[in-house]
Nucleic acid binder design. Structure first.
Length: 434
DNA sequence: TCTGGGGTCCTAGGACCC
DNA sequence: TCTGGGGTCCTAGGACCC
């Protein structure tokens, strides 16, 4: 069943027919770093690292293959990466640019088939199952996609299989510019020797649970009793067991709407005072509010995350009386929420603010700011400015300035100061929050 | 100087309603 | 006065992904 593809380019080569579902996973190679090398010709062939600062708890987002030679990996602390590869070229990244290149590539994929499920900025599943009208072999489609992507100046690796699980794992087996094909019928043999962790959905915790029961490979997982796996992992256990047996039949489906919008900030130095914490919360809330408005979303579920210096996490979530996209309205509530999980003096390493619950149509902006009708007593969103229309105008004017001159151009005073207080270190060193 | 930032989904318990 | 079960919403925490 397995076919050797090494003579693919030679005339007379014929692919074994593909009479089964065909799923492709297209994964852009070292994507962020590749875009940087595309945009900076002088960086090509050199170790390039996209990531945070080593002295600010930063981690590596993406390392070019030249940097990986030194052992640098994604998610590695930047301080470690710096030690492994001191001469690497560092950048914090240019995300608008990555989005632009990604959109161009996703356009190519959607030109190949409408059945595209974008998983992330640099990954997508395609369903290219041969049909009566289009008999083209999946491997030929994959080859053409690789050529077309390379015309844009970056490369991709592709896995071809009869399911998402197999395609995803295959795409990872040969990088960069790899093409790994798992022909129909060979799924179980392909999966059996692989460590359980290889499979999407099995992380550190599940790996450990399985290891404790002597299960280390997908073959062992496939042979284990389904009841035992379900007992261990609940609903998810059934899915895991089926997938390990090569039986994944999840369809490729275009992803739907965004469900939440959030921003987090890790601080170079832990925050301890109420002034600093509130100033940081206001800054983060402003980012969230601005992104909500840009997307035309207003949410009812406000959440707050606090990470302490020992990495423990507390979170608080509240339902708003009505959907909001306005940080001036929900920031005071965040100040109250943070008091529930934090006492001034306890060092705070990270703060995060999120908004979800977009079920209700986001377009009804007028009623959102109409507070002349008495708000219910338990309403969580309090007006900050008496005249709601004025406040809306202020927010829109501010967004417009930020659009023209960038995020840092303008901030409401208390984002940087903490309410009514000018002595916090936050006001002296706003760069800490960048 | 050991661990980011953006997400999704699941679980379990409690409140509340019928 | 004591009692059950289902459904739904909400909350906190955590696993997992890229």
């Amino acid at each position: 069943m397995q076919q050797d593809l090494t003579s693919y380019e030679e005339p007379g080569f014929t692919l074994a027919p593909w009479e089964a579902p065909a799923i492709l996973l297209v994964d852009l190679d070292a994507f962020f770093a590749s875009v940087e090398q595309l945009d900076h010709p002088g960086w090509r062939g050199k170790p390039v690292i996209v990531g945070g600062d080593a002295d600010k708890h930063g981690v590596v987002s993406t390392a070019s293959y030249e940097a990986r030679v030194f052992g640098v990996r994604s998610a590695m602390p930047s301080s470690t990466a710096k030690r492994l590869c001191p001469d690497a070229i560092w950048t914090h990244g240019h995300f608008d640019r990555y989005r632009e290149v990604s959109n161009a590539i996703m356009g190519i994929l959607r030109d190949e088939t409408p059945h595209v499920q974008q998983v992330s900025i640099d990954e997508a599943f395609l369903d290219v199952t041969p049909t009566a009208v289009n008999r083209e072999h999946p491997v030929d489609v994959a080859r053409r996609i690789q050529r077309r992507v390379e015309e844009l100046g970056v490369t991709c690796s592709i896995g071809v299989g009869t399911s998402k699980t197999v395609a995803k794992i295959a795409s990872d087996m040969d990088k960069p510019r790899g093409l790994t094909v798992v022909f129909p019928g060979s799924e179980r043999d392909f999966l059996a020797p692989l460590p359980v962790r290889t499979m999407s959905g099995i992380g550190a915790a599940a790996e450990e649970k399985l290891r404790a029961r002597g299960i280390r490979t997908l073959g062992q997982l496939a042979c284990a009793g389904e009841d035992e796996i379900v007992r261990l992992f609940g609903k998810n256990g059934r899915v895991m067991h089926v997938r390990a047996n090569g039986g994944d039949d999840a369809p490729v489906e275009a992803d739907d709407a965004v469900k939440s919008v959030s921003n987090e900030m890790t601080f170079a130095r832990d925050l301890e005072t109420r002034e600093d914490v509130e100033a940081a919360l206001a800054t983060i809330a402003a980012k969230v509010g601005r992104r909500l408005r840009r997307k035309g979303l207003a949410g009812r579920t406000l959440s707050l995350r606090v990470r302490f210096s020992d990495r423990s996490v507390r979170s608080v979530q509240r339902q708003l009386a009505r959907p909001s996209d306005d940080e001036l309205a929900f920031t005071p509530l965040l100040f109250r929420m943070v008091e529930e999980v934090w006492r001034p003096g306890t060092p705070v390493r990270l703060l995060g603010v999120g908004m979800g619950g977009f079920d209700e149509p986001a377009v009804v902006q007028e009623s959102l700011f109409d507070v002349t009708e008495a708000a219910p007593a338990e309403a969580d969103v309090e007006p900050v400015v008496a005249d709601e229309g004025k406040r809306r105008g202020l927010i829109e004017a501010t967004d417009a300035v930020k659009d023209r001159f960038g995020e840092a151009a303008l901030r409401f005073g208390r984002e940087l100061r903490g309410e009514g207080n000018t002595t916090g270190s936050a006001s002296k060193n706003p760069a800490d929050y960048k």
